[in-house]
Write a protein that binds this DNA or RNA. Sequence first.
RNA 1: GGGGGUGUAGCUCAGUUGGUUAGAGCGAUCGCCUGUCACGCGAUAGGUCGAGGGUUCGAGUCCCUUCACUCCCGCCA
Length: 594
Amino acid sequence: MNKYRTHNCNELRKDDLEKDISLSGWINKKRDHGNLLFIDLRDNYGVTQCIIDKENKNFLDLEKTQLETVIKIQGKVVSRLEETINKDIATGEIEVVINTFQILGNCKELPMPVFSDQEYAEEIRLKYRFLDLRRKKIHENIILRSKVISFIRSEMTKIGFLEFQTPILTSSSPEGARDFLVPSRLNPGKFYALPQAPQQFKQLIMISGFDKYFQIAPCFRDEDARADRSPGEFYQLDLEMSFVEQEDVFNVVEKLLVNIFKKFSTKKLMYENFPKITYSDSMLKYGSDKPDLRNPLIITDITEIFSRDDVSFEIFKKLVKSGSRVRCILTKNTKDKPRSFFENIDKWAKGLGASGLAYFTFEKEKNLSAKGPIGKFFSEQALTEIMKKINAEVGDSIFMACDKKSDLEKITSLAREKIGQDLNLIDENIFAFCWIVDYPMFEKDEVTNKIKFSHNPFSMPQSDLNEKELENPLDILAFQYDIVCNGIELSSGAIRNHKPELMYKLFSIAGYNKNDVDEKFSGMINALSYGAPPHGGIAPGIDRIIMLLANEKNIREVTMFPMNQNAQDLMMRAPSEVSVEQLKDLNLSLKNKK
RNA sequence: GGGGGUGUAGCUCAGUUGGUUAGAGCGAUCGCCUGUCACGCGAUAGGUCGAGGGUUCGAGUCCCUUCACUCCCGCCA
């Protein structure tokens, strides 16, 4: 028999009455009645109430023992009186009468309480992460994460995917995020980079003939943090398949996600077959390529209305003449909303730096009219036309914005969220997944005005790039796709370009000549010329999936040992300075500090 | 790199228009209490009000600088 325990702290039930048992765990809570002491003993599995009174010679010692001390108790299981049963814990029908106890691990005065629902400053939580992780909610989050990951492994393996590890020390890639660099001792002056993703390796695995690959892959990017973005490192379910089209990848991932979310959440799925929305549709209807489909509001372009003679809203008309567009959001049956509702949204938009949101409500007594400060600028015929265009009924309202396309997308997207929230239209108990497809291969850099890859340079274009298409590279679409859930981008993927000639063509559009490509992607381009299968894949973000399942807004709540916003580990004190000897080994010298 | 928020006891927070000795709850220490499950009651200790400078007769409070944490923008193929 194990010397620490016969049972864990979530095991004892009425069936165990009168048994002599031992438990080990942390003192979660003490309730000291002077001559009678209750101790809630906690371990990973649960809590058991233990009790001791002054007749016992150990009473005074136990009474003095600090919370969070690790103890072993030995005693007898007894039933609780009917009125003292605790229904909130699984072991609540029994308690353990302590005979002897032993301290296994002492505990100093705590810098933060463990047994509390209070929120604490991030700094102290991260410094004492081992204490923070004892707390219920985050402890459960981390267990959930473990379970989801094993579930993914078993599901993927079941359908024929093989899990492979790829190198952590690899080479720096020219595109994308900043790399983390590791100096090479054996190759003075040269550096490894930590992989931003195993992108090239997984393609090489396909070219090596392995057919279906996955990995719970660590990815390293040296970029600034956000609430849903760890600084430094994060995990992806990286996967790749050979001889597949877009639909094949969709089928695998859609089924997997449906299974995960059904198994690990009680929230409903809005769609089990994820709708596919083209990038251009998404940008128009939602103003974003990560739409929250729980929100029923839709954006419509009504620019043409403002070239009518019977519309006299001159501010918009002028802007439209100089190339701006007008888009609107329709809200159903909002005629009885107070004026403050409309004004607040207009004010909110102005606060964001936009020129505000014009609004009115469709009304009809004898004639159709528009109620609101700008209603008088629209004729009855123009209003009828708008209603037809956006499918509105009397009693509905619209909010309109006028701007250049990209600014217009931004403001309408934010307005859609804001109005959705204000009208309480978003059901928090739903997951709404969708695919965003048909991404453009290229986009124009707003600063330099140069053409650049909009996503992944290794994606397959949807055409062979004949002369005519090459003239308008911004119109070239790629077999490139994203999964979005509740407005959060979960992953992006693509059918890859496995034809070197096509690759050179695409890179030349983005301003790289053949030599550049050969040099920067030598491993890839070389491999592609030795018989590469058509292949594609995707890489859903594990951390964000867990965030959705655990209903957390911050990625640190689902990460065991996260860094803070400045990419420091306050517990391990990373990053740290290194010795002169270490630097010398690496052929590095530091510039003098300020 | 830029913008917002926060910083007062070990923890969570209050602190009025600038005005006497900076408070509460939890935790700690001591005492009382045999049925609690956020046990209860009483007492004690615990403070560079993030740091530095300024205004003022007087600053936790006003001003300037700076640091830390956090959220956002940029960035994240």
